[in-house]
Design a protein around this nucleic acid. Structure first.
Lengths: 317, 317
DNA sequence: TTGAAAGCGCTACCAA
DNA sequence: TTGGTAGCGCTTTCAA
């Protein structure tokens, strides 16, 4: 049989109320009673029923995680960081890897104490509902009008990466990626301007945001006559790199390639793609911190990606 | 304000009991009342409180997913397949990507209706606890003594893959991977035996199960004087491939490489690694099916990985 | 087919 | 510091 609170209370010779206090950590109670009840709970194999506790207290110690990115490759690092920071606050992460609206309903009906939305923005309607419930919410990897958000400073990150390429002697750098990536394009342009270089739109190599896209972008890239490429995602970078190598070009001797995201940080040893990695550790710690900060404080912050010096960039040949 | 069942009932002019019946789909109730209550619920934005429903009914419609593999790269496909099959049964997946014991406690205290354990086996203790709670449990990607399990037929899969290499003219194939992979080794040997070929232990190239491991295994592989390599994971395969190409060898002209797992199926276009992909779709549908089958029926099944003919294998040069 | 009422297991309030 | 008691929001008997 499942051990219930009343069984525990009876065995300890106290009331259910006292047993509950002993376990929950709050409440006024003698430390001796607490110790006794807790050790007994362990011995008897008692575990609170989360459902009942949540219903009675209105708190579940669950933090819901949803949003487009939840199952994306570069999210592994972020998710495990989030889980570990949350753990220190005694909270557990629950993932709802579905479309935002749907995932949100599940999470809300579970009585989560906080919500993290990853790589997606919040509609006004949803924001209103969340506000009404007073649910602490943080948006990660995007900006939100409605709640605290920790965005990635794509402009600054790309700018720093491109400056690095320029300092390595590259004077004509291709911008390979989906056109929509306008933040990244802006950082790209700013780095050039700061170095006193002109940027022609001819260095823009449009391609789909996949490895295949990068693979197919080779001819356009070569036609752009650049000595280096900035790819707006690591997938693109890897595809392009592969395709250039198959063509007999050497990386980084002939061409330098800089990626974005840091998807393979844990996986690839050498040769490692130089990339602008998502600042997952900073994002995670700030997000969790903010979730438990004064709820009235709405904070917006942008965090720079981390420049990872890999083996795919070098001095201009 | 949050809309509660009693608000809905009052608005519909029925008792809470009736409103509850109208929503839950079971219970005897006139279809007219049901329709009225349901449309009203939608209009008023009513959502059941999962906590309360779970507490009262003992059912949550949640299926817990835990085990070592939950956040591994090749699990993406499996997890989304699981989610979609579960959805058809009106169930939602909840992920607990922590060490098994810990994740299990969270899930159990949530009152899940079923449990999927991925790529891990169940200890006798845990099995006993699950049995006591009568929680339908299925183990995926491993064999279990204690509950239904759908394992991957690694032996048969590798055997088929190696036979394919043999049919392409390869007579001496390296086995690159961690030594622990004994199922795979067995399949490797059987394929040779069936073809009337001898297997020398000299073709065993031990290496760590990472891209870096594969990258470093190059010299040992070359020393083994094989025309093809079977790597026990795609990471290893990719590392080895990369390292050989850097060395000026052409794949598959000079060497054929076959991987295992299918981690990049969705991501990489060309060139695509030939691999033995985890049979995620079959695993997912069978697992969900079994979860709702007669609980007394314990089923054990092994499913063949899917052979993906990529561009990394070819006729012996 | 419906309504009234008794819980599900726990926490929170009040009084002692 | 403790115990009694009234719910949390829902489902599920049992009668009607």
């Amino acid at each position: 049989m499942q051990v219930l609170l009343k069984d525990l209370a009876r065995a300890a010779g106290v009331s259910e109320a006292t047993a509950s206090r002993a376990l929950s950590g709050s409440g006024r109670i003698s430390s001796e009673t607490r110790k006794r009840v807790r050790s007994l709970a362990e011995k008897m194999g008692y575990h609170v029923n989360t459902l009942a506790r949540g219903l009675a207290s209105g708190k579940t110690n669950f933090i819901g995680v949803c949003g487009a990115g939840v199952l994306q490759p570069f999210m592994h690092r972020l998710l495990s960081q989030l889980a570990s920071y949350a753990d220190r606050k005694g909270q557990k992460l629950i993932f709802a890897p579905w479309p935002l609206e749907e995932g949100l309903q599940v999470l809300l009906s579970l009585g989560i104490d906080g919500l993290l939305i990853c790589w997606e923005t919040l509609s006004a309607d949803l924001a209103a509902e969340l506000r009404e419930r007073q649910l602490p919410t943080v948006v990660l990897g995007a900006h939100s009008k409605y709640c605290s958000s920790f965005n990635v400073d794509r402009i600054g990150g790309v700018k720093a990466g491109i400056s690095k390429l320029i300092s390595l002697g590259h004077r004509r750098i291709a911008f390979v990626g989906e056109n929509a990536a306008s933040d990244k394009w802006q950082g790209f342009v700013e780095a050039h301007r700061e170095a006193g270089l002109e940027v022609s739109e001819a260095v823009m190599v449009p391609c789909q945001g996949s490895t295949l896209g990068g693979y197919r972008a080779k001819d356009l890239f070569l036609a752009a006559e650049c000595s280096a490429a900035f790819a707006t995602s690591d997938e693109i970078a890897l595809g392009l790199l592969k395709s250039l190598e198959e063509d007999g070009r050497r990386i980084p001797a002939d061409y330098s390639i800089l990626g974005y995201d840091g998807i393979y940080l844990d996986q690839l040893g050498r040769p490692r793609l130089a990339t602008l990695a998502q600042p997952s550790s900073a994002l995670a710690s700030k997000a969790i911190e903010q979730l438990f900060a004064a709820p009235s404080q709405v904070v917006h912050q942008s965090i720079l990606p981390e420049f990872i010096a890999g083996d795919s960039i070098g001095m201009r040949g």
